[in-house]
Design a protein around this nucleic acid. Structure first.
Lengths: 346, 346
DNA sequence: CGATTTTCCGAAAACGTTTTCGATTGTGTA
DNA sequence: TACACAATCGAAAACGTTTTCGGAAAATCG
């Protein structure tokens, strides 16, 4: 009934707990015969070391924490998959928490992770997160942290991101190259860095191409939902009859917009060209298929864990941390929601 | 640097570890003054009990394990969200593992969870899982288990499912009610129970309505992908020119089929009616929008955890387990991929 | 055969907490 | 004064492992 312990193995074999422990870990100072005996018994008894006792002793939980704003999300679930896959390779387990885009929850969950003594944490910030005291708790306790996607530049740790600004620039440039003159932008909330950077890239592309920047063409969305996409698509057409292109912060919203335009009989891309962001699976299924920026979620997850693993190892060897931020490549995927057919990297 | 311990608190306050511990947990045999002192110091020192020491002592890890075949999946990520939400309410953390539809991995991961001494595990079986010895390991160690969605009837534990057979019956009936005479079925692999049950429901509906059952109209898919949907859609039309309806095991495949039919100029629902399964978000966006069975992922996650929690509590109180299987309601969502417009529950 | 090395083993401490049970002090009562 | 009783505290064991260190037995060597 109760899980079998080293003590039981030792007793039935008439040896000490010490020897049993050492036998299982192939210490050189135990005979081949004893090793065989111990290992065999452990096998038949289905012995599994009590991870908590081990952690208590070794200070290594072989567990990391992961905090994401939302699980049900193509991008984040891809990231999760990448993280789990990579973690497993190194023998790490991952505890997943959801901040639901709330700063308060995020804070509470870091506390939780801290008391669980995770070896490190990966985080993608909630939209509402403006200050970073809760991250400081991690720093103080010296638990490695790496941020991905939704990061805070100010926090001193490793990061993995895409170049949102450049990608947005490319997207907008593509619209301009296709002859668009009045390009709107559906952006995300004010705080998160990606939202800002994508807006900046959009604006920069306009300026560099001598297309006048008109603030009234920029719409700030709240929850970045399908319905918001529909709503703002309609509103945009009411506000500006001359719009001929939109760069939209995220695919889900773009798909909402396309749906609304289809309902209204607006022709895409003839009347309006649309570029999204993320390259969700849906984007290649909607009609017309959506031109978008591919955002490599799985890869981001993998590299995020790799960076964290490096930090964990450095800490174990008492070496100073070596923070770096790696920037993953994005790609403009051109489909039917914009006219021209060429491919460019960003 | 190092996390602060009870010992430190006790020493700086000049009291014993025992008293410090008891003060924090509001034992009656410590004075209000001491309690205040200890609590204040704990607060300012940001003390967090070492979860491993606690677990080692109390045998309660306040952690559960979750094994799903695939994370990047609308249904499963919804389930995950439900589980995490509910677990958090009860102070539980969840470790997520992915079986990638592989029996071997599933087995390994149960081992992992076992050595982590999780308080319970939630599992949705991999498609390839045919025997259940690995689950027995859990039983033997007496760690509560509940299965959801992809279950094994033979295993003795709590389960939460939908009535796949009934739902499939309803879906097929709907096709028949719409005048379909030659109804194909794209089904999943042979092993998993849902795949079998949905097929059985399909067949039963045909029989009950005196529509001849033709085995050659049933296609067995392997990986249930978008591309497979496209492939078999084309193949079906080559094999059977007279098909006028398809009941498809899962929305993703259905969407592949719709895409292919759209390319081929086949009219939906005029030439062929289609019913999917799951009610993914995509299904309400594709053109034509897909009639499908709604599968309540979030709710399934919540109830799965609730059942597990009950078992955990029962075990703690040394009560006998009380296995039950709860069946969640599904709903036929009628959209444009089938003609008629009425709503029925299943 | 004595000395030295090698081989193998185990005692014990430590990780940080929880909990039982006894000890001490103070207070009130007879 | 003696006693009972409540209030407050702490010693110590326990959870299951890892690892250091010392020592006994066996093997090797001169």
């Amino acid at each position: 009934m109760k899980p079998v312990t080293l003590k039981q193995i030792a007793e039935t074999l008439g040896i000490s707990i010490t020897t049993a422990s050492k036998a299982l870990k192939d210490y050189p100072d135990v005979s081949k015969k004893t090793k065989r005996l111990v290992k065999e018994l452990a096998e038949t008894l289905n012995y599994k070391p009590n991870a908590f006792a081990v952690t208590l002793r070794t200070k290594e939980s072989k567990t990391i924490g992961l905090i994401v704003p939302e699980v049900v999300h193509h991008f984040f679930s891809s990231v999760i998959k990448g993280i789990i896959a990579q973690a497993e390779k190194k023998g790490y387990l991952v505890i997943i928490l959801q901040s639901n885009e709330s700063y308060e929850l995020e804070k509470k969950q870091i506390d939780l992770l801290l008391s669980k003594r995770v070896d490190g944490v990966l985080i993608s910030l909630a939209n509402g997160t403006g200050d970073f005291k809760h991250l400081n708790d991690l720093m103080v306790q010296d638990v490695p942290l790496v941020m991905f996607d939704k990061i805070a530049k100010i926090v001193n740790c490793s990061k993995v991101i895409i170049n949102d600004r450049k990608a947005a620039y490319t997207a907008t440039q593509h619209l301009i190259d296709n002859g668009c003159k009045r390009i709107a932008h559906f952006r995300g909330p004010l705080l998160p860095q990606n939202s800002i950077d994508r807006f900046l890239g959009y604006k920069q592309a306009l300026v560099d191409n001598n297309v006048p920047y008109d603030p009234s063409l920029v719409y700030i969305l709240d929850d970045m939902s399908f319905d918001e996409g529909k709503y703002f698509a309609e509103k945009l057409l009411k506000d500006h009859k001359d719009v001929d292109g939109i760069f939209i912060n995220t695919d889900l919203v773009a798909i909402g917009a396309i749906t609304k335009f289809n309902e209204m009989g607006i022709k895409i891309p003839d009347d309006i060209s649309i570029v999204g962001f993320s390259n969700w699976f849906m984007s290649s299924v909607i009609n017309p298929r959506l031109t978008t920026i591919d955002q490599p979620g799985y890869k981001m997850g993998k590299t995020a864990f790799k960076l964290l693993y490096k930090e964990i190892k450095k800490k174990k060897e008492n070496l100073p941390p070596n923070f770096k931020t790696v920037e993953l490549q994005t790609e403009l995927i051109i489909r039917e929601s914009t006219k021209q057919a060429s491919l460019s990297k960003t």
